[in-house]
């Protein structure tokens, strides 16, 4: 298990490095002079030249990349254009709100998706199975911002059950949780459908396996066979899917944060793009990328923990 973990960690570091290279190339290829963009049209050539030197743009491209690479690994993502504050600090301030949003989305998708998938697999072909099937496809098909707007209209504006905007009072956990319900539902509901479909399909496959027949032939209770013997195997693809799904949730978080006027990395990137604050965009995207890779690493480790075959193969 230790060897497996180290191997996965090494792979994660390599992937982050490649992501940095791609990100750097992308910024480098964007047409226009970053210094000119940052300083605006009224700056003099001397001012632009001074900023270019400060940003290291006068150096060869591979040195620029090397500096970006080394600094980024040390947590230095440069300073943002508007207030000259360190990008890393600005992003980190916004990160907890986004993490809470995604964690909430995951809670929704897992807490509803796994039981629904399991239930429809056991009662396959029945009315409930069909209704959940239609529901799953529907929530997968509806974009998260549409869910966000309707949730806002119904629960916040019409029924007035839940707050419409903001992330709640700082320090007041209960208030923050209440503010989290609608945005996280918007982020997670599509994944309820995905997970319900996936768990149902893999559950049906596992229930046909001969070891399940053996377990029944040994007289194990139905509940134990379904949840302990079948579901632990059927859940494995879901864990992997969730790792990928979090990337998707990160992008739908942008919409949820804008619709619900929540602070967060998504809102930060959105504002940064509107003000052409490129260092901030780069930094926020890099942090998001690292987050995504980290979560996939965790997902892989969880699969390794749950499945001894994976553990010993790697």
């Amino acid at each position: 298990m230790l060897y497996y973990s180290l191997k996965r960690l090494g792979l994660a570091v390599a992937i982050v490095s490649v992501a940095m290279l791609l990100l750097f190339t992308m910024i480098y290829l964007i047409p226009g002079d970053p210094a000119a963009v940052a300083l605006g049209p009224r700056a003099t050539e001397a001012m632009r030249e001074a900023l270019r030197i400060k940003m290291g743009l006068d150096q060869p491209v591979w040195i620029q990349f090397w500096n970006f690479f080394v600094n980024a690994w040390q947590g230095d993502l440069g300073n943002e254009v508007l207030s000259d504050r360190p990008v890393a600090k600005v992003v980190m301030e916004q990160l907890p709100a986004t993490l809470a949003l995604i964690a909430g989305g995951m809670v929704w998708s897992v807490a509803l998706g796994i039981p629904l998938g399991c239930w429809t697999a056991v009662k396959r072909g029945g009315m409930a199975d069909r209704i959940v099937g239609v529901f799953s496809v529907a929530v997968i098909a509806v974009p998260s911002f549409v869910v966000a707007i309707y949730a806002l209209l119904i629960f916040a504006v019409t029924l007035r059950w839940l707050p419409a905007i903001g992330a709640g009072e700082p320090g007041d956990l209960g208030d923050q949780l209440v503010h989290l319900i609608l945005p996280s539902l918007a982020v997670g509901i599509g994944w309820v459908g995905y997970i319900a479909r996936l768990v149902r399909a893999s559950m049906l496959e596992v229930l046909e396996a001969s070891h399940i027949r053996t377990a029944r032939a040994f007289g194990l209770p139905d509940r134990q066979v379904t949840y302990r013997y079948a579901l632990t195997i059927a859940i494995l693809p879901t864990v992997t899917l969730l790792g990928v799904g979090i990337g998707q949730m990160l992008s739908s978080a942008v919409f949820a944060e804008i619709v619900f006027a929540r602070p967060g990395v998504g809102k930060l990137v959105y504002d940064a793009i509107l003000t052409r604050n490129y260092p901030l965009v780069t930094g926020a995207v890099l942090v998001t990328t690292v987050l995504f890779i980290l979560i996939n690493l965790i997902a892989d480790l969880v699969v390794g923990y749950l499945d001894p075959r994976v553990r010993s193969r790697l």
Binding site: T214, A217, G219, Y229, T232, P308, R309
Partner: peptide, 25 residues
């Protein structure tokens, strides 16, 4: 029936590769 299975009537199946649960020791 379940209370008899495994206790009074037990079974060995054909496929030894798949007869045991792969994720439980």
């Amino acid at each position: 029936m379940q209370s008899l299975r495994g206790l009074r009537i037990s079974t060995v199946f054909q496929d030894p590769m798949g007869a045991l649960n792969p994720v439980i020791s």
